[in-house]
Design a protein around this nucleic acid. Structure first.
Lengths: 203, 203
DNA sequence: CGGCGTCATGAATCGTGATTCACTTCTATA
DNA sequence: TATAGAAGTGAATCACGATTCATGACGCCG
């Protein structure tokens, strides 16, 4: 029984794996998916190309994890801004603001996560990103409908529509740093709150 | 001066060019962008691969024209449903219905036009598609604001958001033929009309 | 320490599909 | 009809980046 990875080794491997995912995220932030070749990711992680394949069987698998991690991070950021008890309108407004400001702060990464063309197989994984958002919104919407705060609506469809609206509305601003973030936040909050039947735009 | 293309020849060349574009559109409808290789388009048009290059310098140029033609066709379909004098709410509701039903009728093509991953350079051209829609909506919104029918809003941003909302909300239904079209139309009309501050969902 | 796997390496391989080009077939004139 | 060029052809070329794999280095156990 000449070999059995020890804890120390196992920990080092896990660290490398994480370094690869982080490198991929950084690469996305810097040059988008187009720049995220396996060679580029490996170089950034400080390892050889082939080593990436000791941790992920394929590029698709790697980016599945990358998108999963990014989704988690973004959704956590939204979650942190409000608690479940607060009025639905307040929560939605806060989420829109956070979503927009975070996207504008990291436009290249946001574009890669939201809309940049990726391989079809990776596209499927990117859906986790949008779905994670949509789920969050859908739950808040359903709560709002239950409490009578919001009028009846299809929570899942509406949530998807909201996510699509935010993404599309951001596409222009993500490329050309034109309008002020404040105005953008304001206009999108108004749009979203109206879309769910809440007139009072600002809680 | 031994050769100079005659009118007859010029017309035949134009016809071939158009046949190529139509073949590309058909290919999109049948197998999406993923299936639309230059060889496949050429085969469908009944010509050799190299011949395509006598009409378009590159695949990007070909698909620029393809998306332009598709956009024109779709936007014309929306335009045909309403006239400029009608109430903004009526027009929006009609457009949503037409948009959704046309997409559901040709899901593969709709997916290719709306969301399928494409080469980055082609992606830029696909924006013409979304932009054409957004422009149409933006003009109607601006009119509605002018007449006082709609509350003040950023017409361009709102139009983009609406297009994004429709596209995203359709993604699920385009893949899995699950819910009924009627319910989808209804929910999206409600969403859109609310989002522009018009409570009376159905004109 | 000695030897058995693992791990890491990165150059070479592979697959894919756009693009090219040497050649053939037409078209339009004299 | 003969000829200069244009149009059509499709197999070969090319580019590109994911993936593989022969080789060397290292960690683990007796």
């Amino acid at each position: 029984m000449p070999y059995r990875p020890t804890d120390r080794t196992r920990a080092r491997l896990a660290a490398v794996r994480e370094r690869i995912v982080d490198a991929a995220l950084d690469q996305l932030a810097e040059g988008g998916y187009a720049s995220a070749s396996m060679a580029a990711v490996a170089r950034r992680a400080g390892i050889a190309t082939g080593t990436v394949y000791r941790h992920f069987p394929s590029k698709v698998d790697l980016f599945a994890e990358v998108f999963r991690k990014a989704s988690q991070r973004e959704v956590d950021a939204l979650r942190a801004t409000t608690a479940r008890g607060e009025p639905a309108a307040t929560r939605l407004a806060a989420w829109v603001e956070t979503f927009v400001r975070r996207a504008l702060a990291e436009p290249v990464r946001a574009y890669a996560l939201i809309a940049e063309p990726v391989d079809p197989a990776v596209e499927a994984e990117r859906l986790t990103f949008r779905r994670a958002y949509a789920d969050l919104f859908a739950r808040a919407l359903a709560d709002g409908v239950d409490t009578g705060e919001l009028p009846p609506l299809d929570a899942d469809l509406t949530a998807a529509a909201i996510v699509g609206a935010l993404a599309e509305a951001l596409l222009g601003p993500l490329q050309h740093r034109d309008a002020g973030a404040d105005a953008l936040v304001d206009a999108l909050q108004t749009f979203v709150l109206r879309s769910v039947g809440t007139a009072n735009a600002h809680a």
